[in-house]
């Protein structure tokens, strides 16, 4: 019995976005990463293309964070004490891009300064040839101060600056405009908010091929279904031709999953949770792999083992 397979006739396409600039484009990166270009939902090769595979960013910090799971400490070891070493280790662990995130305070509890931001960005840029994504600590004023400094220091490198949020996007977008960078536009799990922020950003003249949408996700067990569905909806809207949703998506399953008690805590938890290390990596893996299936173009992870496994998944997927 011949079965006619129904195929979607999407009219839209995900925009191509390139991170990082090599010497030819005025930067110093040895590798660039291009994401986007998809003409159907992820990996449905029977009806469309996915010219660029989803990629993995590894999150490193400007200094060893105090509140990360000890399992991550074991995985990265001494490298965590220096952002340059950490960036090198992340590159070796298979990162396609380095996500440098600043802590809210230095070891003495003081807020990081613009000079510190510059020095750290410089160090990371020297340590790795990968594209770099720079995230502030998440406080508007401090983010602006650090990101403007980072933008200056990395001028021409096509960094990604984040997080742009509806309450605080203007300075970051301006810094991206002034120094030729990209932005990571984060909204709280809502299709219309994501669109609205993109409209605001384009209104400031930053072209959409320099915008990554970050629709926010929850971790497995902590609201992943919202992130999962919002990404699915955004991608469907993009394919239906809604221009303001056609940016590639970046999400942070690593950060979310490693906040969960399941990954953070090894003692005093139910036996039914199973082996700590296995479970913790699983938490990140399940969160990340499901988001890759729902449309993520960049997933930001923390543990080298999950990086390895998500890479294997993406490679298997792309082999079609």
């Amino acid at each position: 019995m011949p079965v006619e397979i129904p195929k979607e006739k999407w009219t839209g396409k995900v925009r191509l976005v390139t991170l990082g600039a090599t010497a030819a484009e005025g930067g110093t990166r040895t590798r660039r990463v291009t994401v986007g270009g998809g003409t159907t939902l992820p990996f449905l090769f029977f009806e469309g293309d996915m010219p660029h595979k989803p990629v993995i960013g590894i999150e490193i910090r400007d200094r060893k964070p105090d509140d990360w799971s000890p399992l991550l400490g074991l995985a990265w070891g001494e490298a965590m004490n220096d952002p340059g070493d950490w960036a090198k280790a992340a590159e070796q662990a298979g990162a396609d891009a380095i996500v440098l995130a600043f802590n809210l305070a230095d070891a003495d509890g003081k807020a990081p300064t613009a000079a510190h931001a510059k020095a750290t960005v410089r160090k990371v840029l020297q340590a790795t040839g990968l594209p770099v994504i720079v995230n502030g600590p998440g406080q508007a004023d401090l983010d602006n101060e650090l990101l403007v400094a980072a933008a200056e220091e990395g001028a021409g490198e096509r960094l990604v600056l984040g997080l742009c949020e509806d309450r605080n996007y203007r300075t970051i977008v301006a810094a991206a405009l002034g120094h030729g960078h990209l932005v990571q536009a984060r909204t709280a799990m809502d299709v219309n908010l994501a669109k609205q922020l993109n409209i605001l950003i384009t209104d400031m003249q930053l072209p959409l091929d320099r915008v990554l949408m970050d629709p926010t996700t929850g971790a497995l067990g902590y609201g992943i279904e919202y992130g999962y569905s919002v990404m699915e909806r955004l991608r469907i809207a993009a394919l239906q031709g809604d221009s303001m949703t056609q940016c590639p998506m970046i999400v942070t399953p690593g950060e979310e999953a490693w906040k969960a008690k399941e990954s953070k805590v090894g003692e005093g938890v139910p036996k039914a949770w199973g082996d700590w290390q296995e479970r913790a990596i699983n938490w990140e893996l399940v969160t990340a792999s499901s988001l890759v299936e729902s449309g993520a173009d960049i997933v930001v992870l923390r543990h080298p083992e999950s990086v390895k496994r998500v890479h294997a998944m993406i490679d298997a997927m792309m082999a079609g």
């Binding site: 399941e262 036996k271 199973g274 479970r279």
Partner: peptide, 9 residues
């Protein structure tokens, strides 16, 4: 059967 796999699933 492995609780560390099963619980997340």
């Amino acid at each position: 059967f492995n609780p560390a796999d099963l619980y997340p699933l």
